[in-house]
Design a protein around this nucleic acid. Structure first.
Lengths: 114, 114
DNA sequence: TGGCTATATAACCGTATAGATATATTGTTT
DNA sequence: AAACAATATATCTATACGGTTATATAGCCA
């Protein structure tokens, strides 16, 4: 489970994977159920699920012969926190900008937070 | 300026590009200034900037011979909104889960919001 | 055990991406 | 106009990615 910002953002850049997450927001689902809405092969879906799992966005269970997936929201929280550093850019007036800039230190901050 | 979720998430999946955004959170900067912290060629940085701009995350200006970049937070807001659909997974109790699930409809919702 | 079901893995292919170096473009300065 | 400075574009290379089909694995059931 990498769960780095690299892996998380990369996983989310694919619309199929975002759709899978959307489906999992409704609750646990099997691979077959997750594959159903798409015109993709089962192995393609399994690959997407692997990417999501390695990014820490979902987890696999085991129920008889199936391996149901469910959301693992920690990774989403991670990028939500990252975006939080920039939230003031659209949420608030630019007057207070200088006050918070010490929080956003670029490369090093980004790596340490990974 | 694509500004689709695909393009935004993809742009953010690279640590160099996130570092550039971090730098731009401090304020406008030239290409040379943005390139300075990295051991990358100038064309490599220009490419990264192009990716960020096409995702709608930054904009280019023109000042004499330089083309300073600055943040364009709309795209970040876009993914912040997307993540908002999942925020309850870590922010709140799971009791209210069923109540909001109608908001998260997966593939079609994702595409319409693009 | 043999066969069925659900899922994973392997091998392969075409396209995209990140980097490099070399060159072109555009504005400034003399 | 010529030279310089800042940046962009072209071309190339290596690797990653998303898809496919074929095959392997694991658990259940007759």
């Amino acid at each position: 489970m990498k769960s780095s910002l690299d892996a998380i953002f990369s996983a989310l850049s694919d619309p199929t994977r975002r759709a899978i997450l959307g489906r999992l927001a409704h609750g646990k689902a099997t691979v077959a159920e997750l594959a159903d809405p798409f015109e993709l092969s089962q192995p393609a879906i399994s690959k997407h699920l692997k990417v999501l799992e390695q990014a820490g966005l979902i987890r696999s269970g085991r129920e008889a012969t199936s391996r149901p997936r469910e959301l693992e929201p920690d990774a989403l929280k991670k990028i939500s926190d990252w975006i939080g550093d920039y939230r003031r850019f659209w949420d608030q007036s630019f007057d207070r900008l200088d006050g918070y800039l010490s929080k956003v230190q670029g490369y090093e901050d980004d790596k340490s937070g990974d």
